[in-house]
Simulated scan of single mutants.
Amino acid sequence: GSGSGGTGLTALVPVDPARPLAVRLHRAVHAVREAVDHRRATGALDAFDGAVRAGASRELTEALIALVRGSEGARIAVDWAPAAGVPEHCGTGPVAFSPGDLPVLREAGARYLRAEPSVPVRITGAVVRLRRPRPYGEGTARLRVLAGAEVPYVRVVLAEEDYRTAGHAHLAGLPVRMRGRLESRGGFRQVTGACEVVPVRVDDEERDRLMKWLGEGPGDPDLFGGPEAGADGAPRG
């Protein structure tokens, strides 16, 4: 719920199988609260590293920011089923976050983002931008992720042949699929070591929908890096 006088939201979940998830969330929220207090008392963010073991994450800090932002504060509480009792190491009182906690939560989210390990992925995405400094060689693509990773966009450096494949797929209204490792660099999600880049066949309806999105959506209409660029990324002379 929100601070005093605000509105509340109650979620009822069954003891089985949701209880372990509720326990994990309860411990994670308490760990974040303690880490925020530690940061405000000492100026150090290291308590957020230890909070990961309790379930803290970048996604949790973002969720807490969304709850608190624009309000006087938010309180989170778990009422345990009397028949099952209170789990070990879990309290019964609410955990509160205030607007004054927002800067620390944002710092923690940025810290988690920088520390995220790279993970192997097999991504399918629509090409929304291609750029390379010369009319040959490797280039950079920006993809709107359709499947394979829970992020909206990624950047990827492609070898010359893969870059050409991505350009042809876009012109044909087709997404591409590739393997690589998903990393976070400077706040941007990037796929490194891209390989097995191939166009993905879709039916006519899906292709029309994709083409419409590319024409109307937030993707950069300057697909090939400039109004004077050709379909292979080379400047027109």
Score class of each variant (00 low, 15 high):
residue 143 L to V: 10
residue 204 D to C: 01
residue 159 A to D: 13
residue 232 D to R: 09
residue 9 L to W: 06
residue 146 L to W: 03
residue 214 L to N: 05
residue 212 K to Q: 14
residue 214 L to M: 15
residue 221 P to W: 05
residue 132 R to G: 13
residue 110 A to S: 09
residue 125 G to R: 03
residue 74 A to N: 05
residue 18 A to V: 15
residue 74 A to S: 13
residue 172 A to Q: 14
residue 136 Y to T: 12
residue 32 V to L: 07
residue 165 T to H: 00
residue 21 L to K: 15
residue 137 G to M: 09
residue 233 G to N: 03
residue 223 L to C: 01
residue 95 V to R: 04
residue 57 S to T: 11
residue 114 R to Q: 10
residue 104 V to G: 01
residue 133 P to A: 15
residue 167 G to A: 13
residue 189 R to Q: 06
residue 163 Y to P: 01
residue 171 L to F: 07
residue 171 L to Y: 08
residue 68 V to W: 02
residue 107 E to I: 04
residue 150 E to C: 07
residue 189 R to N: 01
residue 109 G to W: 08
residue 1 G to R: 08
residue 87 P to I: 09
residue 203 D to P: 02
residue 59 E to L: 12
residue 144 R to M: 13
residue 179 R to V: 04
residue 34 E to K: 04
residue 123 I to W: 04
residue 125 G to V: 05
residue 104 V to E: 05
residue 145 V to Q: 06
residue 53 R to H: 10
residue 215 G to T: 11
residue 205 E to L: 12
residue 167 G to C: 05
residue 45 L to T: 11
residue 50 G to M: 05
residue 17 P to M: 09
residue 165 T to G: 02
residue 20 P to C: 09
residue 78 V to Y: 05
residue 79 D to A: 15
residue 100 G to M: 08
residue 42 T to R: 09
residue 53 R to V: 10
residue 41 A to R: 15
residue 57 S to I: 06
residue 182 L to A: 02
residue 120 P to D: 11
residue 34 E to V: 12
residue 2 S to M: 13
residue 80 W to V: 04
residue 172 A to K: 07
residue 91 G to F: 04
residue 134 R to A: 14
residue 150 E to F: 11
residue 23 V to W: 03
residue 171 L to M: 09
residue 188 F to N: 11
residue 1 G to A: 12
residue 77 A to G: 11
residue 208 D to L: 14
residue 215 G to A: 15
residue 185 R to N: 02
residue 85 G to Y: 07
residue 70 G to K: 08
residue 206 E to W: 01
residue 138 E to D: 11
residue 80 W to N: 08
residue 87 P to C: 12
residue 144 R to D: 12
residue 90 C to D: 07
residue 197 V to Y: 01
residue 54 A to R: 15
residue 22 A to K: 00
residue 19 R to M: 14
residue 168 H to D: 11
residue 80 W to F: 08
residue 173 G to R: 01
residue 92 T to C: 02
residue 87 P to R: 11
residue 85 G to S: 10
residue 8 G to K: 06
residue 48 F to T: 04
residue 61 T to E: 13
residue 133 P to F: 13
residue 233 G to I: 04
residue 41 A to V: 02
residue 75 R to A: 13
residue 93 G to M: 01
residue 145 V to R: 05
residue 219 G to L: 11
residue 155 R to A: 09
residue 144 R to I: 02
residue 91 G to S: 06
residue 144 R to A: 14
residue 14 P to F: 10
residue 94 P to S: 08
residue 184 S to D: 00
residue 22 A to Q: 06
residue 148 G to P: 04
residue 37 D to P: 00
